[in-house]
């Protein structure tokens, strides 16, 4: 197949043009959010919110309000409910999140079978980018554009919040506003993506670009830029590939993103697998230049420690959200 035809042939169709615009928009806004999620360790949050929007869509249909509003409300409710349950019980955060979003998703399915809607479940779950209308495109452009503007304007505050919430609070930044603001932005992003890739595949788009960029650079601004570039090129390539092989568009976009990640994972100049191996084989490297995790990742070590201990010895420790000051739980 000639490369020009590969791109020009689909362009002859109006629906392909709209699909391309849609996937570019969604790709870009998801990519920006993904940088924060990857750094904050909130990948599961994207997973949870996106599953949880299902009942919101059905209820919005019943009430006759815009589906996006219902989806947004449900997504935010999931995030808030998770926070509430976690704060008030001894169940771990990831478990609580799993319970809440699966419960909401399950409830959404039950509702869906009982309510006659004009929506196809498959389209909600997996997206239907080839069927978007111009009105859909405008709606997405407004939501995604607004989200992008806010994130980019407040990108430094959000970054500081992800990096060191204690410092953010100490210098008087409104940490709660940032926390819930990020959740709101995440919900908006997911809502804007449903038509294009559906509520399951959006999780991939909320992780892969940020993860790819994270392996390529040590500067956050560059990370944002790379993530957006990766996501947009994946959107274009994926859309065209899906046209030619007649496969699910959302899936193709996600697979192209995954392919990009794989390339970077292997060949990244600084943090790639091959580079790491090279360095390991050269013992004489100066200490300062060895890339990669010098200390254990907090997310990895913190997660699995002392879980069963709580069964035996529960309570005693202040169940405070802001426990970051006393980082060493093990020592207490």
């Amino acid at each position: 197949m000639d490369p020009i035809g590969f791109f020009s042939e689909p362009f002859a169709y109006d629906f392909m043009q709209r699909a391309l615009g849609m996937s570019l928009l969604v790709g870009a806004v998801c990519a920006v959010l993904s940088c924060y999620l990857v750094l904050k360790g909130w990948s599961l949050m994207g997973d949870a919110i996106s599953h949880a929007v299902l009942p919101g869509i059905v209820i919005a249909f019943v009430l006759g309000i815009p589906l996006a509003v219902g989806a947004f409300a449900a997504g935010l409710a999931c995030a808030l409910l998770t926070g509430y349950l976690k704060y008030n019980s001894r169940v771990k955060e990831d478990t609580v999140m799993g319970i809440v979003f699966s419960g909401m998703f399950g409830f959404g399915l039950v509702l869906f079978t009982k309510v006659e809607t004009d929506q196809h479940l498959n389209h909600i779950l997996f997206g239907n980018v080839l069927g978007v209308t111009t009105a859909d495109l405008i709606e997405t452009a407004i939501i995604a554009g607004g989200t992008l503007l806010v994130v980019l304007a407040k990108r430094r505050d959000l970054l500081l919040y992800c990096f060191d919430p204690n410092h953010a609070r100490a210098i008087g930044l409104p940490v709660n506003v940032l926390h819930y603001g990020l959740l709101v932005l995440l919900s908006l992003t997911i809502v804007s993506s449903i038509k294009a890739v559906g509520i399951i595949l959006v999780i991939a788009m909320l992780i892969a670009p940020g993860a790819t960029a994270y392996l390529l650079t040590d500067r956050f601004e560059r990370m944002l830029l790379i993530a957006v570039l990766v996501a947009c090129s994946a959107s274009v390539l994926g859309t065209f590939i899906s046209f030619h092989i007649d496969g699910a568009t959302g899936a193709c976009i996600v697979l192209v993103q995954a392919f990009f990640f794989l390339l970077v994972f292997l060949f990244s100049p600084k943090h790639g697998l091959l580079r790491l191996r090279e360095l390991r084989d050269q013992p004489g490297m100066p200490a300062g230049t060895i890339p990669g995790p010098a200390e254990p990742l907090p997310a990895l070590s913190g997660r699995t420690d002392g879980a069963l201990q709580q069964v035996v010895d529960q309570g005693g420790r202040p169940a405070d959200q802001h426990h970051a000051i006393e980082g060493r739980h093990g020592a207490e």
Partner: peptide, 11 residues
Amino acid sequence: PQSEDVDWNFP
């Protein structure tokens, strides 16, 4: 902050 509270891989 204490060193343990910082994500040293942050970009």
